[in-house]
Design a protein around this nucleic acid. Structure first.
Length: 297
DNA sequence: AAAACGAACAACCGCCTGTGC
DNA sequence: TGCACAGGCGGTTGTTCGTTT
């Protein structure tokens, strides 16, 4: 039984769309084609006007979301590979649930995709390893009882550089790099990857970015650690500009800026104590929960 | 074979921020 | 300064479909 307010809402349409009655739910191929055709020829100077001009009974937000998450030609479809997974874990450790920021480091991936992948896959992996997904620290119950886990194989790796690295906040990018975990992935599941949505078929022009070559070029040769500056460049330069697209500002300015990270009060998902935990953990000579993760420095 | 379950992903909702007036 | 609007973002819900029972 649907609530009255829900029925009223459907009659009235979206809040953002005023009185216009709009269609909701999954997009049909016809709608996709209309939107794709309109955006590729006219761009999207104003999303609120796109539905009307494109002949769609959708709200502007819905059109924007559909374009960003599904129709954009520079999107990369398919499963995340290990390098991408590692990037997500590393950046998430620094930024928290800033999916849009994380997605900027993964060319062709959307924040929604990253978020879904995190919630459906990575989160469970971390939990299965006794790691708190929000802090990436070992949970208390696992701190000294994880000997059966493969991550304990690297426990005795020596600490070195990171302590000094973290004394200079401007070196966050290096710190991010230094925080790369090796061998964090649990044994692969017996379950095969579920097929992606069968609705969309890539045309040759939408061919996949050669992720292996691309990503390997972003990795430090010895440590398989991403070069963040290169990732940023990729994110900016590989996405083709389309009509109506605004120039993408360099992410260097705000993404990995230590001052912002540690001083922004509005970062709700970001642990306010992270800065102190982070720095104390890195400078501490005593117990460091990260030891259990096998850092490679 | 069919129902139940669960994983993956698409889409929506509400809030926040930036901008123009 | 305050308001309205559009766009962006993160959290959540809904849908689909493969797997298990």
């Amino acid at each position: 039984m649907r609530e009255k307010w829900e029925m009223k809402r459907d009659e009235m349409g979206h809040r953002c769309c005023g009185k216009h009655k709009v269609k909701r739910g999954l997009w049909s191929p016809e709608e996709d084609e209309k939107l794709l055709r309109y955006i590729t020829t006219h761009g999207h100077p104003s999303w609120s006007s796109v539905p009307k001009l494109a002949g769609l009974q959708r709200c502007g937000k819905s059109c924007r979301l559909r374009w960003i998450n599904y129709l954009r030609p520079d999107l990369k479809r398919g499963s995340f590979n290990e390098e991408e997974e590692q990037i997500i874990i590393d950046v998430h450790r620094i930024l928290g649930n800033k999916w849009a920021q994380i997605a900027k480091h993964l060319p062709g991936r959307t924040d929604n995709e990253v978020k879904n992948f995190w919630n459906s896959c990575i989160k469970k992996k971390l939990l299965s390893q006794g790691l708190d997904p929000s802090t990436h620290n070992l949970m208390p119950s696992h701190k000294r009882s994880s000997s059966s886990s493969n991550i304990s194989n690297n426990v005795s790796k020596p600490r070195s550089k990171t302590t000094s690295i973290m004394k200079n906040p401007s070196d966050l990018d290096q710190a991010t790099t230094a925080f790369s975990i090796t061998n964090i992935n649990p044994p692969t599941s017996n379950k095969p990857n579920r097929l992606k949505s069968p609705v969309r078929t890539l045309t040759p022009s939408q061919a996949m970015i050669p992720i292996n070559d691309t990503m390997s070029s972003l990795l430090d040769d010895e440590n398989m650690i991403p070069h963040w500056s290169h990732v940023d460049e990729m994110a900016i330069h590989e996405a083709p500009m389309l009509p109506g697209d605004k120039p993408v500002a360099g992410v260097d300015d705000d993404d990995l800026n230590m001052d912002i990270l540690f001083n922004t009060p509005s970062s709700s998902a970001f642990d306010p104590d992270f800065a102190s935990i982070f720095s104390s953990a890195m400078s501490s000579i005593d117990f460091n929960p990260m030891d259990d993760l096998g850092w490679t420095f």
